[in-house]
């Protein structure tokens, strides 16, 4: 017995709507600007959305730059390290160590060397995105079935060709997992870095609003960030459906899946 799509999405709405209602009721009873309800937040969104969208634009630009730098460097590096077993084994403990380090912790260190400008922020974001990307790509490349490599050699592929035409596509399912984590990490660190050392961006906006006790405005910005997060997530999901359908459909793949 399966529910129809519509019924399912209606069911999914029950809890959020209940929470919003409860929140609104509590806010009315508290009746203080320090505890705004969803209604006040909606009004804030209405009033501030041009500003919020503008500030999110700065944030996203930086997040995207850092993310792209990380992806461009870490995916090839991960594939390479997975192939070079000895080098990989040497680097692995460092990767594990970095993986347990919360990315915001490196912000002061980077500030020391790179200052507080956009370059510094993008470096921090790139670092935050790099860790999950490298870990996942390396793991995928390392655990590829040896058969793939045998086939590549019998087809007389060069090392580079094998990495591009076999290792990379075979690793994509795990790279996708890394990409998801990297997107989340990049956004998190962008906002954190802005709160600490930016002159613009949504992090700064939120901080200013909170400092002025404009809690509703801050929440409005946070709502926007979650919407952006949802949109990005959905985008990634669509891309996965498009590029990784073979992984979800096939039972026996080269990777670790």
């Amino acid at each position: 017995m399966s529910l129809s799509r519509r019924q399912e999405s209606l069911r999914g709405l029950i809890l959020p709507v209940a929470i919003l209602l409860a929140w609104q009721v509590l806010a009315w009873r508290a009746s203080t600007p320090l505890f705004p309800g969803p209604w006040q937040v909606t009004l804030s969104i209405w009033k501030f959305y041009p500003q919020i969208v503008g500030q999110i634009g700065y944030t996203l630009m930086r997040a995207a730059s850092g993310f792209l730098v990380a992806a461009a460097l870490m995916i090839p590096l991960g594939i390479l390290l997975g192939r070079l077993k000895t080098v990989g084994a040497i680097v692995e403990p460092i990767m594990d160590m970095l993986a347990t380090l919360p990315p915001p912790a490196v912000i002061p260190v980077v500030m020391l060397f790179a200052g507080t400008g956009d370059a510094a922020k993008i470096s921090i974001i790139a670092y935050a995105a790099a860790v999950p990307l490298l870990m996942n790509t390396y793991e995928a490349s390392k655990t590829l079935h040896p058969m793939a490599n045998l086939v590549a050699r019998s087809l007389r592929f060069s090392r580079l060709e094998t990495m591009l035409r076999i290792d990379l596509p075979a690793s994509l399912p795990m790279i996708a997992t890394g990409l998801r984590l990297a997107v989340a990490s990049a956004l998190l660190v962008s906002v954190t870095a802005e709160m600490l050392l930016a002159t613009n961006g949504i992090g700064v906006f939120i901080q200013r609003q909170q400092e002025n006790f404009q809690i509703a405005n801050g929440l409005a910005a946070i709502a926007f960030i979650s919407i952006v997060g949802l949109i990005i997530n959905n985008l990634v999901f669509q891309l996965e459906k498009r590029w990784l359908f073979w992984h979800y459909r096939s039972s026996d793949t080269h990777g670790n899946g």
Binding site: H145, A148, S250, D252, H254
Partner: peptide, 26 residues
């Protein structure tokens, strides 16, 4: 070479035509 382990010797992200064309890559 035709390998014993056929399921792992073909590439799941390529359709059958492209898998065969892979044999002519070089």
């Amino acid at each position: 070479v035709v390998f014993q382990d056929y399921s792992r010797s073909l590439f799941p992200w390529k359709n059958n035509r492209d898998n065969v064309a892979f044999g002519m890559a070089r």
